[in-house]
Design a protein around this nucleic acid. Sequence first.
DNA 1: GTCAAATTCCCACTATTGTGGGAAGACGAA
DNA 2: TTCGTCTTCCCACAATAGTGGGAATTTGAC
Lengths: 80, 80
Amino acid sequence: MDAAAAFGRVLRRARRRAGLTQEQLGLEADLRRTYVSLLELGQQQPSLTTILKLATALQHQPGELVDLVVSEMEKVANGN
Amino acid sequence: MDAAAAFGRVLRRARRRAGLTQEQLGLEADLRRTYVSLLELGQQQPSLTTILKLATALQHQPGELVDLVVSEMEKVANGN
DNA sequence: GTCAAATTCCCACTATTGTGGGAAGACGAA
DNA sequence: TTCGTCTTCCCACAATAGTGGGAATTTGAC
């Protein structure tokens, strides 16, 4: 699993846990609704500032979010 | 201080601590020598995969690196 | 099944990330 | 000073991050 896909899974999980729609998250983080979708689908990867925006909107430590991505990649690397 | 500048300062500090030149770090992380320079100068910000590559080359947790960036931004926000 | 809300997909486009190579400048040691 | 190493700056360029809007599809509640 590449970083974009792992980030997408982590993002979707965190967004749902926060009870937000993609559009609401987009408003909070100042990102397009359709771009949030692309990220969750793992079709694009975020830049640093996008990571920071999303983490803030989701009320996470940015570093925590990144480490979740790393675990997600390891998880799948070790046969799910 | 914006995210790119903060990342640059953190990156330079970590690289020097590791005793690497920009070129050596570039080789480890599979990034151009000149691009490492741009990042350290805060003239560009990294994408997620670039963050992961650099953290690995510097033997840091990626999330740790990101949180150092956040503290760097806060530090300066509060008058150094 | 129906309906509204949520998400994905489509278009085109702009801005920025990252490559590639080389020249110029800065730095430190002898 | 002189030499070698490290870093910055310059060029052009390719790839992808992110915008903007709208149509098609999926999803879940009723």
